[in-house]
Simulated assay, not measured.
Amino acid sequence: MASVLGLLEARERAARERVEDLREAAARAAAALEAAEVEWDRRVIAREELVDALAESAEEATAAVETEGEDLPAPVLASVPGAVVPPWREGLSVAVLSLDNQRILNVLQDRPGHEPVRAKGIAAALGIDNAVAAKVEGVRSKAKRLGERGWLLQEASGAFSAGRRLVAGPGGGSSA
């Protein structure tokens, strides 16, 4: 007949082995999640770089058409999914921006005192899970693009606030 102490030790040993197995599985899952997030971030950056390169190419083509004296294409009246963020200029409606970018602008404009907000705070205000770094990076990249194009003001600290400014166009002059 086995002793009670021996039975308890056997159960303890089995529980400890189960905990160790689960910890190893959790570590593998965490490593796989981190690798997937890194890959996702790389894909987002690659897409954004492509969009920026296409935008520069379009700006150069537009500048070439303007110098030749030909008519300019009709302005875009509404946002198109995946569309490039145009440089802000006087009289340009926010309707030319994607819905995500419009939501970011609204969050910053609705803040009392228009205090600067970091991307994590914008994500939280939009109802996005700000504990997921890749989702916060998506918001940061959109806000940064809006800042580069003059739709938002970007602080040196990386925070963003509501406001507009003219951005230099391809020829070095203002974009207005």
Rank of each mutant, 00 (worst) to 15 (best):
K144F: 01
K144S: 03
A176V: 13
A119F: 04
P86L: 14
K142T: 03
L146Y: 01
E59I: 15
E115A: 11
E137T: 02
V117F: 06
R165I: 03
L22Y: 04
V107F: 05
R118A: 08
D110W: 12
A125G: 06
A156P: 02
A46H: 08
R43V: 04
A61P: 01
K144I: 02
L99H: 08
V136K: 06
A83Q: 10
R89E: 00
A36V: 15
V76P: 00
R111N: 07
A14Y: 03
A31I: 03
P170Y: 15
G163N: 01
G113K: 11
R43Q: 10
G172C: 15
N101Y: 05
S161K: 14
V65N: 08
A119M: 09
G6S: 06
W88Q: 02
E56K: 10
G173R: 12
A46N: 05
E148V: 07
P116T: 05
A35Q: 14
S141H: 02
A156N: 03
P75E: 10
A162W: 08
N101C: 09
A131M: 04
Q109D: 10
G138E: 10
A36R: 14
S157A: 13
V117N: 00
R16Q: 08
G150A: 03
A156K: 10
A74I: 02
V117Q: 06
S93Q: 08
A58N: 05
A30M: 11
W151A: 02
A25Y: 01
Q154K: 05
V85W: 06
R11L: 10
L33A: 09
V139F: 11
G158F: 06
V84N: 04
G172V: 15
K135P: 00
Q154S: 02
E49R: 15
A32Y: 14
E34G: 04
A55T: 15
G138M: 13
V117C: 09
